[in-house]
Design a binder for these strands. Structure first.
Lengths: 338, 338
DNA sequence: TTTAACGATGTAAGCGTTTACAATGCAAGC
DNA sequence: GCTTGCATTGTAAACGCTTACATCGTTAAA
């Protein structure tokens, strides 16, 4: 296995200096066409591929962006990452991906790893991160952006929406339909500010109407279809039934809808169900799911653009609020008469 | 913004040489506990974080693995990547992710980028990749592994299953149920060896029974629910109806099942439908989907293990075949009487 | 024609690690 | 007490690239 060719090899073959070869790669405009042609053909002949590590070391620029998501198993994050990655690739950046499995401690660890890999920027999800993380990013002055969240008053750059406000809108919509017996199947709120904000939004909106989200009608479950099913089943088979169930995301809501069908509970006749995310599926199941459309593609793009701008010294709004639309479909209807 | 601390700073503060600091980081066993303690506290005091680029340059090891997937929008790939990433992280490797959007040319470009970023290994999907890609990997002797495919005779390391054979099993299963009028909604076969192998498997198995997969009963569509719906709709509304529809993956199959319900077509009474992948959803929709369970988690783990072994010089089987189970559920039944 | 200014190129000094090799100290063996 | 051998540490040379600076023609301005 012989050594890979280096700039020096290319330079020798092309009859120029290594500096010129480097310039051909990084600023082709600054080198005369004649020389450039010689270099290009030397590169082709040798099959030269620049060494990223050396390049990163010398230029203090890695060309990579890191992202830490809770999980890729929820396709809403996968879609967001897909969009982020495509936008980054278009700007010649590569994505380094890690997952936290919904643990802030693991997140901190993954972020440290990414930072030591030398990422130029970081995409995070949510607002709550361990203090040492923010400290590290500040000290190394690594640009970062929180996504899936929007906090106009917070100190951190963000691209997203106000989870509390959107959840509140869902609750208000149900209240307007006459629902009073409202239950919620939330995601696990520990280490998850989006989940707790959504709960808070529902609670706040209900209490504005003098209503209370009872403790036994607030169920926390991991985001999975099966958990949505069992939670819904539990809600429907113990004591008085709620007339509406707000789910922390679409996955839980899908579970609820499936379980309702299995139990013979009429949706929305007996009970209304709402989701959060608007997965592709939401519009196809029957009854189709009323939910909030999270602008994942847009979020990925905006996060990429923010970081790319920051890295190249350009300016970009520190906070971007994205619109979340309430998509009313068939799983919600007027509250049944008492 | 002051310079980040380097090994030299740590060494000075700890009163040792840079070599010792380096050893503390990479082979703690070889340095005396006393010295190690001093180094550790110096690291903590300075908040030192090693520079990945410099480390990669000096050690010829990046600690990163690249992966190129067609898309993350299909959650089956997202799950695979999730599993791969978790396994890699456990072995202190970071994942560099790119997507090809089902284009081999774009794949080649992304692979070149990853290679120049200095990945230690590469996870690819499928067997068909541009010749220059294989050539490049060979020349730079970068370990790689093809996933989602199993080719015992091919020259490439792989972890997966035989798409043709599994598709054939699905077809045979339907034939055994008495189906003769079989149609297929395939994914786009251009640049996608898994999709074309699946078609080939169905065709082969049918022709073994003297049957033909008619041209107008083989529809190619991008993998999306909507495309599954429209394709199914088309199949059911032009000319004689098939009694069974084999779908290239679960996403298409979900579309078909949803459309059947919308059209009032009875599944499996009027028509049987099969998928491929076994998404979480497949078992929850109604009727639940008969499909082939692709062992994504296992595939991610095995791919990670293969590369990690290769990189650390250990040996690992070049080809791993994973079992794919045919999961019979409610969307398939005996062919209706003629 | 002279001079200044500029564009293209080369020289060489890093960038922050790792690691081969040398040096040192120490315990054990004789 | 002298050797040996081992464990630990230090010295300094890569690793492959970018880029500040110097150099050298050339051209435009005066």
């Amino acid at each position: 296995m012989k050594r890979s060719p280096t700039v020096a090899d290319v330079a020798r073959l092309a009859g120029v200096s290594t500096a010129t070869v480097s310039r051909c790669l990084n600023a082709p405009g600054t080198v005369r066409p004649g020389a450039r042609a010689k270099v290009d053909s030397a590169i082709a002949e040798l099959g030269y591929v620049p060494d990223g590590a050396a390049r990163a070391l010398a230029s203090r620029r890695a060309g990579t962006i890191g992202a830490v998501v809770p999980t890729l198993e929820n396709s809403i994050f996968a879609k967001g990452i897909h969009s982020l990655q495509n936008r980054l690739a278009a700007a010649a950046n590569t994505l380094l991906l890690a997952s936290s499995n919904y643990s802030l401690d693991q997140e901190e660890h993954e972020i440290r790893t990414l930072v030591s890999r030398g990422v130029d920027g970081l995409v995070l999800i949510g607002t709550s991160h361990r203090a040492p993380v923010y400290e590290l990013l500040r000290r190394k002055s690594i640009p970062y952006v929180n996504t899936w969240t929007f906090d106009p008053r917070g100190p951190h750059p963000c691209v997203g929406f106000d989870n509390r406000q959107v959840a509140g809108r869902i609750a208000r919509y149900l209240l307007d339909l006459g629902h009073r017996r409202i239950a919620m199947i939330s995601g696990v709120t520990l280490d998850n500010d989006r989940a707790s904000e959504r709960v808070a939004g529902v609670e706040r909106t209900m209490s504005d109407q003098g209503l209370l989200l009872q403790a036994d009608w607030l169920i926390e479950r991991p985001y999975s279809i099966v958990d949505g099913r069992t939670a819904f089943h539990h809600l429907m088979s113990s004591g008085p039934r709620p007339s509406a169930v707000i789910c922390g995301n679409d996955v839980l809501a899908l579970g609820a809808v499936f379980e309702a069908e299995a139990m013979g509970v009429d949706v929305p006749g007996d009970v209304s169900i709402t989701g959060f995310d608007d997965l592709e599926l939401a519009s196809h199941i029957s009854p189709s799911l009323t939910t909030a459309r999270v602008p994942v593609e847009h979020m990925g793009i905006a996060a990429a653009d923010y970081l790319i701008s920051r890295i190249s010294g350009r300016t970009f709004p520190e906070r971007t609020e994205l619109e979340v639309q309430l998509v009313v479909r068939e799983t919600t209807g007027r509250a049944p008469d008492e």
